[in-house]
Amino acid sequence: MLSPVILLPAILNGLMTGAIYALVALGLTLIYGVLHIINFAHGALLTAAMFAAFFAYTLLGLDPYLAVFVLAPLFFVAGYALQRFVIGPAAHGEDRNFLLVTLGLAVLIENALLYFFRADTRTIDLPYAFNVIELGPAFIAVPRIVAFVTVIVVALALWAIMQWTDTGKAIRAVAREKLGAELCGINVTHIFAITFGLGTACVAVAACLLIPTYYVNPTAGEAFVLIAFTVVVLGGMGSVAGALIGGLCVGVIESLSSVFFGESLGQIGIFASFIVTLLVRPSGLFGARA
């Protein structure tokens, strides 16, 4: 089992999968870092985005990698509107209400998809989906490499936005000191919505990267949420770099523990390392003190 023939592909595979986790987690961590809420609707939004990518391909013939450029802005706007006009007003600024509202939204979105599109599992068959690149003993599917590179680019772009743009600076200011930012004339409600929009746009990108090798049905996104939560916490809530590195780590841990302990038990590897990390370092690997 310990031979490099299996170890190297396992690690590479973990990195590829981890990149997707990182992207889903990026959206969550942004929202958490600024709004301090755990967004339970994240998985449902991912599912919705996957449906959008699916229909973009089947109805409009738009390749998922091109659809990104349409869907990401679209979901940004949707996320913005959702926070500004639904979540924000309904939650009245209380944690437990954010919880309920996002839970309610998750149920609503998932079942709306079920009602309108039925429960059928949908897949798309792209000509390049089965192309692989050989790296020594490892065969890596082309879509997974594309996903990996895209995630790195998106993470860098997000980081740059946060560092250098006025909006980014405003987001950081709100994240650190809401009241102070408000006194400086920053429109906090607007920044909240912008952040939620960015988080939702991340999910749209993830959906376009997933759909070539995965499937979509009304519950497809759920599979990625729990894991994204662990990534967010491991990386330190609110940290872009943390989410990226945390995602890659979780991918590799999952892949290796699956190889050594089997798929079912292997999932424990993620949660156990998550628990242990938190018990030892309660603010995550990259987080500021809680």
Binding site: G104, V107, L108, L114, Y115
Partner: peptide
């Protein structure tokens, strides 16, 4: 008997209730 429709309303009402009774 429409699958999903009931839970769709359920989610909608949940959001509405929180909005009205925070």
């Amino acid at each position: 008997d429409a699958p999903g429709l009931d839970l769709m309303f359920y989610g909608l009402l949940l959001v509405g209730i929180v909005g009205l009774a925070p």
